[in-house]
Nucleic acid binder design. Structure first.
Length: 892
RNA sequence: GGGCGUGUAGCUCAGUGGGAGAGCAUCCGCCUUACAAGCGGAGGGUCGCAGGUUCGAACCCUGCCACGCCCACCA
């Protein structure tokens, strides 16, 4: 608030705010955020009497930096938090980061690789040290970026999934689950990434349709099997056929020689086999295929692990030491040599799993791992949403949630990584297995060792809503803020994260009555940010938006508004630079409107005047509707509509009409009327800025402080001047007494008259500044007689003087006729064209309405209001037609 | 293979039974003393296709077409 471009024209002595001619976000944002932090506005108080409203942030990866998806996610959360804070809630937005096990380990391993080292060169301890070191150096860049965005998070409560308290929470719940037999260790087929060298859970595997080659191998004269993974035949321990398949029934129980190995394997009957698919014979490799494992279990077959962790063939023979992709053609070639390939390979598209981290093809692998028995947990997670204890917004997405929790497989939680929470289980020299809680003694002595594996990253994330509040201690934070109010995240991690928080929250937490407590009351899901054509953002396509770039160029508010304005619940959010420019323009519009108001002495002191002009009553009425609308949209997480509603109220109603209508009053001779308008204008802007603050906090705070005169109201309450901020101002409440339908109708008519005259002028090629003499008829009938001066002001019409002759006529719905003296400049052809167009429209209206009103069924069944409205439309159109015809006749 | 969703103006999207809307883009005219990051005006749509229900359908039902997403252990 420095640069003064124009001296205030009629500034009152107490109003000394001076605004630059255009909004400059950079300086304002930095200064405002520092003030918010210093004033303590971001911190929540667990001991306050205010009702709680809490959001835990979806913790970004410690490796991450702010991308446009975060910007969307955070804008939504910040908007919710800021509004609730203004509404008088004790609002807590808790920030933090996720250690992101496999992702972070990969990043650090890549850095090591650049030095020619592997993690094994360092050893476990040194490697983990390196990760912590790296985290300290570059981790948390995103936290600084969150400040640029304006996130009003409580920095005093920042958490990290690997910090001491959260590690304690992890160990506590692991022990509890273990004791409840909900965690077990077993040898199962799991998804194995041969590059990351670790097990993966089902949802860490991405399926794509890949092209493979199907080869048919003859095991015997009668048995032919087809496969896309020929090398796995080395691990076959059976061939399966359908028990009722007439072709093979007689072979069940017999044996066949497995080519290349000399091993004899049984033929088993299993209903899993589809006789209609392929030859109806399936090779069974229990150690490398989940189906085959099941078959093996049912028939007591041995499992032969024929590949190691890196997918290198381990079985003895000519293929030993070959990679799976080298072995595949080699095996096929050897089989062909023996005449075992009956059908040449043919292309075959089938679903193949890939590691979601590195895209390497996943190798199913028999392996000893830890699992969570998800059955009872998933049931509870589903029920909590089914019975409404947790609400998913938009509700349609709950179908996906149910589909997933109702069909959940057990969750493989052990990872063969070094970065993460180490599994708190010790193995003794005599086969003892001891699960150790946080306060238990760790077994010592010869031969005891801890499990080498760490837990899936999502295991600790699943505890986030309560571990961050201090659990397992019974903290004040936990008592005050759990269950959290709403969880905001993208629909893409509904399964990864949301469902698991539900499972663990319900399992670990109890409410006052001892019943399971949900981790959050509402899940508000948003979509993915896309480009202006709805395309996914990708580096290779070059359409990625960097929010920090936008913040630099257009401001944080513009960036936030652009994202919020596209955020329809659960839908993807398209954005583009042009739209961000538009948002920047909107911020500037607010800036200039407030600047205009201050220059003209608008203020917020004292009560609203009791004596109000129709124009004041109109804008105040519109304001009440806007408040109600915005409140409703906020409650429904309809951020696009919040923005749209405020955008139109601010730009159309306030700037384009109210400010223009106020100009003659402010500069007029009636000092009392001018003073009333200054007060109303101040009030409208005050309320508007409050309503916009949750979405665009910086510019609104800056303007509001200028408008309220450095916090006069707050000073009265004895608060220090530096504390003044819109952040802690009250959220507007609609006042039904200010709703004024007659005033709204009146202004609507006024606007129509002005717009029609402007249209006439534009059609006639009259310069905007050119004054035209005109006679106005029918104003009284339309109830706007008092506004004749305003209409003349806005439409630039002079009073008819001597020798006035009407040459152009504007017929406006509502019975108003404006006759203009446009001699010398009237374009008869254009005028006739304009009138003819209006005539056509009126005729169409008449014929439509007449047809409908002549329909007996319509009259009998349509609601009274609809019929009445239609009658009114018909009458209006008929009146219009008469006036248009008269004007046309006059034109000749 | 199963499930969910979408199709409305050039682009992105609102609009769940009674006069087709917004932003951006386009065209015309304006530096009208808050704002050219602006002001005024205009053009533009068989609401995917075909049936059905209804006095009345962008909206409800059926089928088809085209996209998109999620889930999935048929070799």
């Amino acid at each position: 608030m420095t640069d003064l471009s124009q001296p205030p024209r009629k500034a009152r002595p107490t109003q000394s705010a001076e605004l630059a001619a255009a909004y400059q976000p950079g300086e304002v944002e930095q200064r405002r955020y520092a003030q918010w932090v210093a004033a303590g506005h971001l911190n929540a108080d667990a001991k306050s009497d205010k009702p709680p409203f809490a959001i835990v942030i979806p913790p970004p990866n410690v490796t991450g930096s702010l991308h446009v998806g975060h910007a969307l996610d955070h804008t939504i959360q910040d908007s919710l938090i800021r509004r609730k804070r203004m509404q008088g809630f004790e609002a807590l937005w808790l920030p933090g980061m996720d250690h992101a096990g496999i992702a972070t380990q990969n990043v650090v391993e890549r850095k090591l690789a650049a030095e020619g080292l592997s993690r094994h060169d360092l050893g476990r301890e040194k490697f983990v040290e390196r990760v912590w070191q790296w985290k300290a150096e570059s981790g948390g860049a995103i936290l600084g970026q969150m400040k640029r965005l304006g996130d009003s998070v409580d920095w005093s409560r920042e958490r990290f999934t690997m910090d001491e308290g959260l590690s304690r929470a992890v160990q506590t719940i692991f022990k509890k689950l273990y004791d409840d037999d909900l965690i077990y260790r077993a040898e199962r087929i799991i998804n194995w990434c041969p590059r990351c060298l670790t097990a993966l859970s089902d949802i860490e595997v991405e399926h794509t349709d890949d092209e493979g080659e199907l080869v048919s191998i003859r095991y015997s004269d009668e048995i032919v099997v087809a496969t896309t993974r020929a090398e796995t035949m080395l691990g076959d321990t059976a061939v399966a056929v359908h028990p009722d398949d007439e072709r093979y029934k007689h072979l069940i129980g017999t044996e066949v020689e497995l080519p290349l190995t000399g091993r004899r394997i049984p033929i088993v009957g299993d209903a899993h086999v589809d006789p209609a698919f392929g030859t109806g014979c399936v090779k069974v490799t229990p150690a490398h295929d989940p189906n085959d494992f099941e078959i093996g279990q049912r028939h007591g077959l041995p499992s032969i692990t024929m590949m190691d962790e890196r997918a290198i063939i381990t079985v003895h023979g000519p293929f030993q030491g070959l990679d799976r992709y080298e072995a595949r053609p080699a095996v096929v070639a050897a089989l062909r040599e023996q005449g075992r390939i009956v059908a040449e390979k043919r292309p075959y598209v089938h679903a193949v799993g890939h590691c979601s981290r590195c895209k390497t093809t996943v190798e199913p692998r028999l392996s000893l791992q830890w699992f969570v028995n998800t059955g009872p947990l998933a049931k509870a997670a589903g029920d909590a949403v089914r019975d409404g204890r947790t609400r998913i917004e938009p509700a349609e997405l709950s179908k996906r949630y149910f589909a997933w929790v109702d069909n959940m497989h057990d969750w493989c939680i052990s990872r063969q990584l070094w970065w993460g929470h180490r599994i708190p289980v010790w193995y003794g020299p005599d086969g003892e297995v001891v699960c150790v809680g946080p306060d238990d003694e760790i077994p010592t002595g010869e031969g005891w060792r801890q499990d080498e594996d760490v837990l899936d990253t999502w295991f600790s994330s699943a505890l986030w809503p309560f571990s961050t509040l201090g659990w397992p201690e019974q903290t004040a934070d936990l008592a005050k803020f759990y269950p959290t109010s709403v969880l905001v995240t993208g629909y893409d991690i509904l399964f990864f994260w949301v469902a698991r928080m539900m499972m663990f929250g319900l399992y670990a937490m109890k409410d006052k009555d001892g019943r399971s407590a949900v981790p959050f009351e509402t899940v508000a899901l948003h979509g993915m940010v896309r480009d202006q054509f709805g395309k996914k953002m990708s580096k290779s396509f070059g359409n990625v938006v960097d929010p920090l770039d936008w913040i630099d160029r257009f401001g944080a508010d513009a960036t936030r508004f652009t994202l919020a304005r596209g955020a329809n619940p659960g839908s993807d959010v398209p954005v583009s630079e042009e739209w961000c420019q538009g948002s920047r323009n909107f911020c500037n519009k607010l800036w200039n409107a407030t600047r205009f108001a201050l220059i003209n002495g608008a203020h917020t002191d004292g009560d609203l005047p009791t004596e109000l002009s129709p124009i004041d009553r109109w804008i105040l009425s519109r304001l009440q509707h806007t408040i109600t609308e915005v409140d409703g949209y906020f409650e429904e997480y309809e951020f696009a509509k919040v923005c749209d509603s405020l955008f139109h109220f601010a730009w159309d109603d306030v700037c384009d009409w109210y400010v223009e209508l106020a100009k003659p009053v402010l500069t007029g001779d009636d000092q009392a009327a001018a003073e009333r308008t200054r007060r109303v204008l101040g009030h409208v802007l005050d309320q508007l800025l409050r309503l916009l603050h949750p979405v665009i906090p910086f510019v609104t705070d800056e303007l509001w402080c200028a408008l309220v005169g450095s916090g006069a109201a707050e000073r009265k309450q004895g608060k220090a001047e530096g504390d003044t901020s819109l952040m802690v101002a009250a959220w507007p409440a609609a006042d039904p007494a200010l709703i004024d339908d007659p005033a709204e109708a009146e202004l609507e008519t006024l606007q129509r008259v002005v717009t029609e005259v402007r249209r006439f002028r534009a059609d006639q090629g009259l310069k905007p500044g050119q004054r035209v003499a005109a006679a106005l008829d029918g104003l009284a009938g339309a109830g706007i007689a008092a506004h004749e001066p305003l209409i003349r002001f806005l439409a630039r019409l002079d009073a008819p003087g001597d020798g006035f002759a009407a040459t152009g006529t504007v017929a406006v719905a509502g019975g108003v006729t404006v006759s203009l003296d446009t001699r010398g400049s009237i374009d008869v052809a254009a005028e006739r064209a304009r009138l003819t167009k209006d005539r056509t429209a009126a005729e169409k209206e008449i014929s439509q309405a007449t047809a409908k009103l002549g329909n007996e069924g319509f009259l009998a069944k349509a609601p009274e209001q609809v019929v009445a409205k239609l009658r009114e439309r018909l009458a209006t159109a008929q009146a219009d037609l008469t006036r248009i015809d008269a004007a046309l006749a006059q034109l000749g």
